[in-house]
Write a protein that binds this DNA or RNA. Structure first.
Lengths: 133, 133
DNA sequence: GTAAGTGCAAAATGTTTGCATTTCT
DNA sequence: AGAAATGCAAACATTTTGCACTTAC
């Protein structure tokens, strides 16, 4: 099945590429609607599904039901992030912790397709600000 | 606000306590329906919300929208899970990969409050079923 | 007795699907 | 021209809400 490079698709990709953080369907929709006022949300769903199938984007779950999508190219070195609950700044991890247990998982006959890590807490500078108060 | 120990609540808690893996709303519903045929799903939603507020259960997201709930008491040893994209069965990890990098994170002055891991893929038996076809 | 919780139905959300039409190639 | 994608509306699925009734305390 051949993928066609429609203007809707181009817009969606360009929005995801420009984003420095994972975006939800609604955020993508809001970002695109001014340029393509007639775009249907189903078009975004279908494109997102396709981009995921093509392994061009990754899914990120944060708090609740909403799923956020990140263009993989923007996460080349396979970085994971820790997020400060207060200032929402992200800090990257020096390595992928999953790597450590990959062999075990493989040995169990499980093939990893995807993985995600969320670490939240309080960063150094927010903790410091607390002390000052 | 006082929490009442209704039979619905007791059943939900007992199902979660008996479960060795995180369960979805539908799984809880299916497990309970034979004993309480008139229970409404909204009752389960409301109880789950309450249990979460009370910090008795934790939420686990895997790849798609469904959220799975695990009784905290059952996860004392701090287990993480991997889930098969196909059969949705969960398998537990032998150790917490975050532990490995905890020292690094602490050294950076970051205090971890919470963390989550999602690993998805295809399990041994689903892969085997593919081969047979 | 009273506040909290339940069941039910309806509403609100979020996602998917069918189909006629349009757009890429 | 033909396959793939779109927009729209309707279908589906999931979660939340309003309300009269029931239950735990």
């Amino acid at each position: 099945m051949q993928v066609k490079n429609t203007k809707q698709r181009k817009h969606i990709i360009s929005i995801l590429k420009d984003a420095s953080r994972p975006m939800s369907i609604n955020e993508i929709y809001d970002a695109i609607i001014s340029e393509l006022p007639r775009i249907a949300k189903s078009t975004i769903y279908r494109n997102i599904d396709q981009l995921f199938e093509q392994d061009l984007i990754e899914k990120h779950h944060f708090n609740d039901n909403e799923i956020f999508y990140l263009y993989k190219e923007n996460n080349d070195e396979h970085t994971h992030f820790i997020i400060c609950d207060e200032c929402k700044r992200t800090y990257s991890l020096p390595s992928c912790p999953i790597h450590e247990i990959e062999d075990y998982i493989k040995a169990e006959g499980f093939t990893i397709k995807n993985h995600q890590i969320q670490i939240t807490g309080i960063c150094k500078s927010c903790a410091y600000n607390h002390l000052k108060k």
